[in-house]
């Protein structure tokens, strides 16, 4: 194999490092997208038997969002293996214990039951906040677009922005705002 062919192969099968910001994102929906990147399914060369998956670094897993009452009603099952060993943990309880665990379990279950699953999971790097070690940060060359647009909360608007915001109507002069 010539040097040219070798580097072409190297370039084609290189592992790309992606960054994903989990702020205000539903982990169940994100898991599907992140799974595609972990398995390399977005590549034209993809084949289940070719090792072409990428790395994904997920930050801010502490800030994930569940719709409706999911924080209360979503339960994570665990069994110790002994009699009466079953336990059900609420999502909010689990999130208090480890803020990366809900995201991890979501991706793990979306990857499908096969022998490659645990090796694919090793390419997922989860961080509760924005603090990522510098050596990992240097590898990253791409950012995955968030699934949902992150809305701005009212407290992030400055006073000037609030004042210049277009109003639909003016209050009458004698109206008293309490």
């Amino acid at each position: 194999m010539s040097a040219w062919a070798r580097t072409k192969q190297w370039n084609t099968f290189t592992r790309i490092w992606h960054l994903f910001d989990a702020t205000w994102q539903n982990p169940i929906d994100c898991a599907e997208t992140i799974g595609l990147y972990l398995k390399g399914m977005y590549k034209p060369i993809y084949h289940p038997m070719s090792d072409c998956g990428d790395h994904v670094v997920v930050i801010n897993t502490k800030k994930i969002a569940f719709p409706g009452q999911d924080w209360r009603w979503r339960a994570y099952y665990h069994h110790t293996g002994y009699a009466k060993g079953a336990s059900y943990t609420r999502a909010w309880e689990l999130h208090d214990k480890d803020p990366t665990l809900i995201f991890k379990k979501a991706v793990y279950s979306k990857l499908g039951n096969n022998l490659q699953r645990r090796y694919t999971m090793q390419r997922l790097h989860l961080f509760a906040d924005e603090k990522v070690p510098e050596d990992i940060m240097k590898n990253i060359t791409n950012q995955i677009r968030p699934i949902k647009i992150v809305p701005r909360t009212l407290d992030t608007y400055s006073q000037e922005e609030i004042k210049s915001f277009p109003k639909i109507f003016d209050y009458p002069k004698d109206y008293i705002i309490r």
Binding site: T14, R15, H55, I136, K138, N139
Partner: peptide, 14 residues
């Protein structure tokens, strides 16, 4: 022009 995984043994430079 580009690189990926600079700190790994599978580093790629373009």
């Amino acid at each position: 022009v580009g690189d990926s995984g600079v700190n790994t043994i599978l580093a790629l430079y373009r």
